[in-house]
Each structure stands twice: as structure tokens, then as C-alpha cells.
Design a protein around this nucleic acid. Structure first.
Lengths: 110, 110
DNA sequence: CGTATTTATGTCAGATTGGACATAGTACCC
DNA sequence: GGGTACTATGTCCAATCTGACATAAATACG
């Protein structure tokens, strides 16, 4: 695993350093995380594009600023379900979401 | 909402008929369901392509036959997270998953 | 610098989801 | 009909996720 990838994962709260490296972050799981981070990044981009603060978006989603922060960080405590609902709520079409998921594809086999 | 769409949603356990039609199945929510159903259908297609029974796939996913049935049905009780993990586990690349999500796009504005 | 705004992190009770089990339904073959 | 293989549905409770809150950290602006 290269440094950039490790940094991405660590930033999102996924332990990577220790002996569990190859046990917990198996290929599927890391692909899953990559997808999650791609969606999270997409959400942030869209929010900023719309000139909204996290608090404003939270209101639109009927949620809280802290959860939006966690969504955008791809935190362990948020599901992809919530990310997808949020993206749809902010106006992303399924096609755009598909494009985001493709981003995760290019990061395979790191 | 046309009959085919309504049938898809009803089959998956989403109430549609009554007065809540436009309150609960708002655009975002129905897009979300469409994505879910597209992923569910994709999972079934891949499983069958691989010649696996639901029970065999369940074993591979360390889950149960009943949950696989619900996954493929897009049941309320399964999350998109689980669908995505399952798709990855069965060998779908993020690119293929993106393609599935695009399917949901063509069903907009029904 | 101070302070106002925005974003990040930690925690918790209530809600949702997941694996497992039982059981019902379906399809095919004899 | 009965038997076999597969799929669907309903129900548990343990595990995970969510919104909310408090508060810390970062950033912007004078």
C-alpha cells in the first residue's frame, strides 16, 4: 500500500499501520472504502459549488453539522446509504454518482 | 408514476398506492430506491452468471440465504452498503457498479 | 493579536440493519 | 401424488448507524 493511499484511509479514520494491514484491509474492503471516500469527496465538492456551509446543508438534509462533517470525511460512522441520499438531496443525478464511483476504480491495486 | 415503476417499487415492499404517494416517494427517495433496485438486480445477474445458488453466495458472504434473497429483492431491510459489499465480494469492479447505478438514471421523471 | 465563522471530533440514546432460524412458496423430475 | 432443490417471507436480538449535542480545532477577517 502506497503512502498516498494510506494517508487517505488514515485520514478517514481507518487503522492501517499495524499487523491487521492485510487482514482487515483486504481488496474488497479497501475498494469499498475507496468508493465511500469518492462519494464523500463528491459531496463536499457539490456543497462548496453551491456555496453552502456544512450547517446549511445539514438543515437541508434535516441532519446536523457534525454529521455532514463526518459524511464529507467518509467517517466510519456514516453509511454509503446516507452519502447517497445526501448526494441526491443536494441535486446530484444518479449519472453523476456513477461518475464518482468510477473514481474509485482508478485507485485499484495500490 | 406509471404502472411499471409502481410495480417495481411495490414488489420491493414500498407502499405506493395511498395518499402518501407524493409525500413519501418524493423524487430523491424514488431515485434512491431505483438505485437500490438496480444494484439488487445486478447482484442477481452476477450470481446467476457465476452459477451460484443463493445459499452458496451466502456462504461466500458469510451471511444467510434469506439475506441474499432480500438483497436481490431490494428489500427494505437491506442497506445499499450491504449490496455494494456483496457486489464487490462477488467480483464486480467499481466500474461495473457505476454502470448499474447509471441504469437508475434512465428511469427518472417517471 | 481577538473574535466570528466554519469545520472537526467525541459521545449517547433511539432507530435501523444484519445474521440466523423457521417456515412457506415455487419449480422440476419421477 | 411425493421428493428434491432452490427461493421468498417473517421474526428475533445483536450490531451498526443516525441525529443531536457539546466542545475543540481550524480558518477568515478586521
Amino acid at each position: 500500500m502506497n503512502a498516498a493511499k494510506k494517508a487517505r484511509l488514515t485520514r478517514a479514520g481507518w487503522t492501517t499501520g499495524d499487523a491487521a494491514e492485510f487482514l482487515d484491509l483486504t481488496s474488497e474492503e479497501s475498494q469499498f472504502v475507496e468508493m465511500k471516500l469518492a462519494l464523500a469527496a463528491g459531496l463536499r465538492e457539490l456543497r462548496e459549488k453551491r456555496g453552502l456551509t456544512q450547517a446549511e446543508l445539514a438543515q437541508q438534509l434535516r441532519s446536523s453539522q457534525s454529521r455532514v462533517a463526518k459524511l464529507e470525511a467518509g467517517d466510519r460512522s456514516v453509511s454509503i446509504d446516507l452519502l447517497l441520499r445526501s448526494l441526491l438531496a443536494i441535486g446530484a443525478a444518479p449519472g453523476e454518482i456513477a461518475k464518482l464511483i468510477r473514481r474509485a476504480d482508478s485507485k485499484r491495486a495500490a
